[in-house]
Design a protein around this nucleic acid. Structure first.
Lengths: 163, 163
DNA sequence: CCAATTTAGTTGAACTCTCATATACTTAGG
DNA sequence: CCTAAGTATATGAGAGTTCAACTAAATTGG
């Protein structure tokens, strides 16, 4: 038997989809307009910038940037064309590749970050009470844990960070 | 001065992105696998199914399905190819078009709905306490209101409904 | 009543994402 | 060892999205 949503759940669900979509679209528009990249690329650059030597294995970068390996591979190809990332062959495991954030890539990230953080604040944190932010945190933890119980907290995350 | 995120905000933000992305990916995978359509198409069909005569102006459908006009136009073109939607010229306003949900489209929606609702429950409602669902509702209201203060509640919403 | 503007909708190109497949290397088993 | 299975990544095709035109019709303001 299908467990249909009741009226209240229905409303909440629709609002949830609306709200998350509004935020995502705002982020993508802002980054595309001001930094010429989609949000997914921004996340890749952030993750790389946090890695020791600004270098990471493709597969680990995919995990950390919440990307499929295929998506990451295509994305890195584009980022390479712009000179923001470079691939390096991995000596230990000759199947492997490192992605390396170039200085230009770092500069692009540094230039993009303030506008992006501002958008994150405008769309989310500025509109919530501190208590609501804590509640949202809990809610997201529950969702993540249910969807992917094996993932350690902090491993699958998306990012804004001061470069 | 950039208002950077502090540690806690950072963590919450990353979790939020992770959680919403996990849900969206789960929904898209489920619908693609079991019903051969992306979630955006599902939403279009739901909105149409709720309209009087299963008919709506393209621009209103775009608003209600949270779609750009261009995206909707492309999507309806695809849905037409499958015979799920049909366009009708609008007599009052000869610029306008109606989108009409066909019986086949309705059947496809009815077939897809149970699996979709189940996925919505699995990924969201089943993992939250009733209190958290209420909190989430409030949070989403705040986000929507801030992003788009002109929109009446209930107008920009996304959907699961018993067909 | 007509020119200027706005509104409704479509279209094509460029881009990203997904999915399936291919390639090359590594590890395990016998 | 040597083959079978598994891992790391790349690639190409197909599909959806965005953005910037573009068409056509309606509205507005002299």
């Amino acid at each position: 038997m299908t467990r249909w949503l009741d009226e209240d759940e229905q409303r909440t669900w629709r609002k949830f989809m609306t709200a998350t979509q509004l935020i995502n679209e705002a982020l993508d528009r802002q980054l595309q307009r001001d930094a010429g990249m989609p949000h997914t690329y921004y996340v890749i650059l952030v993750r790389l910038s946090e890695a020791p030597g600004r270098t990471m294995r493709m597969s680990e970068l995919a995990t950390r940037a919440q990307s499929s390996q295929s998506r990451l591979s295509h994305a890195v190809a584009r980022l390479e064309e712009r000179g923001w990332v470079r691939r390096e062959r991995c000596p230990d495991d000759r199947r492997g590749n490192f992605a390396v954030l170039t200085d230009e890539g770092y500069a692009a990230l540094a230039a993009a970050a303030p506008g992006h953080v501002e958008e994150v604040r405008r769309t989310l944190f500025d509109v919530l009470e501190p208590q609501q932010v804590r509640e949202l945190d809990e809610i997201c933890s529950a969702v993540i844990h249910a969807a992917d119980p094996n993932t350690r907290e902090g491993e699958r995350e998306t990012v804004v960070r001061r470069p």
